[in-house]
Simulated assay, not measured.
Amino acid sequence: MSLIHKIALTLIDSVGHVHAKQLVEHFGSAEAVFSASFGALMEIPGIGKVTAGNIIKTDALRRAEEQLHFIEKHQVKVLFYTDDDYPHRLRHCYDAPMVLYYKGGADLNRQRIISVVGTRRATEYGRQLCRHLAETLQPYGVTIVSGMAYGIDIAAHKESLNFNIPTVGVLAHGLDRIYPPAHLPVARQMVSEGGLLTEFPLNTAPDKENFPKRNRIIAGLADATIVVEAIAKGGALITADIASSYSRDVFAFPGRTGDKSSEGCNFLIKTNRAGLITHAQDIPYYMGWEKEQVHAAALQIQLPVGLSDEEQRVVDVLRAGPARVDELALRTGIQQSQLAMHLLNLEIQGVLIALPGSLYQLAG
């Protein structure tokens, strides 16, 4: 598909990511959407007269040319949701962006990715926890994602850089600016040692309504979201809720009772919305990362006869090492509802074992 048409599709008024994907799936390509007739558009469920009219009359292709000029000049990578290098964890989220703009070299499909979020008014306690997290998780080959905001976000990015951990900042605006501007030096370093990612095109300002949208990408990119410090109401709790809705793990560090900077964390733990962590080493344990043994024994296990073709595909993927459910679904091509049945059956037969963090590995 043509890159300009992919970008233009996201620039049409009243066409969000869900409808954009629906249009591409119906017509077969982004180009075909722009050549569709009003009548053909009206046949698609959910596409009313206003949206169909906006598609017919749009000047999105002209505006997409401006985006392309910036993209080529600044070596920005455009990730379309059907591309192999589009973040596969995010692709499984129903409201994932159709297009992402990315500048950097960090692998967005790395085996281990966590998000770190928290209050913009971080205390020394919160900043120390960010350093503790980075120092502890560095040997596990993680990538750390956050939102480039003041407080816990920027502390997580800085400490990641200090410990040579790739770190990705998810922006609530276009790549033609950095907000807040004070974080520009960190952003420049992140481009060479991590990356900057956004769904927003050029000339998009960091408006208030963009931050919740940004938060869903932070949650969707990662295996788990860690809340370091959070007030009772704020973006960190929104991100935690979104991560839970995506069936991702959520963890929180507790704080002292009465400490406003930890009210949100304590609330998440108290209401069972987040797992309690008191040490950064809890993360590898809960995620099953301590199971770093050589899998030679697993390769030699005696598998029961009579495995179905789909069960055998699951086993073949797990021969390479532990994998999460979403990764198994992607690599086997099996729908998650059917995959859940196969995983249960294989676990009952003793072929595989379930680890913390929705992770599975071969028994042996």
Rank of each mutant, 00 (worst) to 15 (best):
E31P: 10
A36I: 07
Q22G: 03
I47Y: 01
V50F: 02
A32G: 06
F27W: 12
D83P: 14
T51G: 03
H19E: 06
M98K: 01
S29I: 01
Y81F: 15
V33E: 06
L90D: 10
K73F: 01
S35I: 11
H19Q: 14
K77T: 15
V76G: 06
H74G: 01
H74E: 13
D85S: 15
I113L: 12
V50G: 03
E65T: 08
A106I: 02
L108C: 09
Y86D: 02
F27A: 03
E31W: 10
K73A: 10
Q67K: 02
D84M: 03
F27N: 09
H88I: 12
S37D: 15
L41S: 11
L68E: 08
I56F: 01
A20H: 08
A32W: 05
T51E: 00
Q111W: 03
H69D: 14
K77C: 00
D83V: 04
Q75D: 13
R112L: 05
K21I: 07
R91M: 03
S35D: 08
F70V: 05
T51M: 05
A30T: 11
K21C: 02
L79V: 06
M42R: 15
R63A: 01
R62C: 03
G104S: 07
V50Y: 00
C93V: 12
D84C: 04
L23I: 07
R110A: 15
T58C: 11
R91A: 11
L41Q: 10
H19F: 06
V99K: 04
I44D: 02
V50P: 04
E25M: 11
D107E: 14
L41W: 07
R89D: 01
Q111R: 13
H88R: 15
F80N: 08
G48W: 06
V18Q: 09
L23S: 05
V33N: 05
V24T: 09
K21V: 01
F27L: 06
Y101P: 09
F38G: 01
F80D: 13
A60K: 10
A60P: 06
C93D: 08
Y102L: 00
Q111P: 04
D83F: 09
D85L: 07
L41D: 07
R63G: 02
T58P: 05
H69V: 14
K103I: 15
A64F: 12
N109D: 10
V99F: 10
A64E: 06
R62Q: 13
A36C: 07
H17I: 01
Q111Y: 09
L41G: 04
Y94M: 07
A106S: 10
S35Y: 05
D107K: 10
R63D: 11
P97G: 06
P45V: 09
T82A: 02
K21L: 04
I113G: 05
V78Y: 02
I71N: 03
E65K: 11
